[in-house]
């Protein structure tokens, strides 16, 4: 059965949000979500890198690794592709758009270790997406991640003025709030579904 790329895109944003249902990219999610502006910058960078790396990894996996019967090397190849791509983008942006470089610059290296990026590539392989579906998934997953981090940043900005029990301050309350956020996203369940 072929699921259309659009359905996958919508599903990856709402019902199968990579952060709120698959828990990927939590580290930078918690660390960089204290301000909306930072969250937006990181979110944009993630969307871009995620789409491009899923495309490249799709090509590398299906045309190189499968042909050479080296499927088990996928982890190391994927992470190398991601690291190389991020490095390339960084150099490219620095050369041609210094303004964008200053806006995105600090977030780019962080993305290499963002598990959501690697996770998206791995999910793409496990779920046997074809090329168009992979693009849809990469775009949707990136947008879903960006949406979640911006939402949490907004909530955390408001929370700065509220009374939080001492032991919950910082990360603990962020986790609980993320839990509530995940519950609201469960409301989308059943709208569209992939696997």
């Amino acid at each position: 059965m072929e699921t259309s790329a659009w359905v996958i895109l919508i599903a990856a944003i709402f019902t199968n949000n990579i952060l709120l249902t698959n828990f990927l990219g939590m580290c930078s999610f918690i660390a960089c979500s204290s301000q909306i502006k930072t969250a937006l910058g990181l979110g944009t960078a993630v969307i871009f890198v995620m789409v491009m790396t899923t495309i490249i990894n799709y090509i590398v996996y299906h045309f190189v690794l499968v042909n050479l019967n080296l499927g088990h090397l996928q982890f190391i190849i994927f992470i190398a592709v991601i690291a190389a791509f991020v490095q390339l983008v960084e150099m490219f942006v620095e050369r041609f758009s210094p303004k964008l470089y200053f806006a995105l610059g600090i977030f780019l290296p962080l993305i290499t270790v963002n598990c959501a990026i690697l996770g998206a590539s791995l999910f793409m392989i496990i779920r046997n997406y074809n090329f168009m579906q992979s693009i849809g998934y990469g775009l949707g997953a990136g947008m879903g991640w960006a949406l979640a981090i911006v939402l949490l940043a907004g909530l955390r900005q408001k929370m700065r003025y509220s009374h939080i029990p001492e032991p919950f301050k910082g990360v603990a309350i962020a986790m609980v709030v993320t839990g509530v956020l995940a519950m609201t996203f469960m409301g989308f369940a059943g709208m569209v579904s992939i696997q």
Partner: peptide, 14 residues
């Protein structure tokens, strides 16, 4: 499901 994970970890950290 997902929310339970977040709540539990939040409480464990606290």
């Amino acid at each position: 499901l997902a929310p339970g994970a977040f709540f539990t970890l939040g409480i464990v950290i606290a």
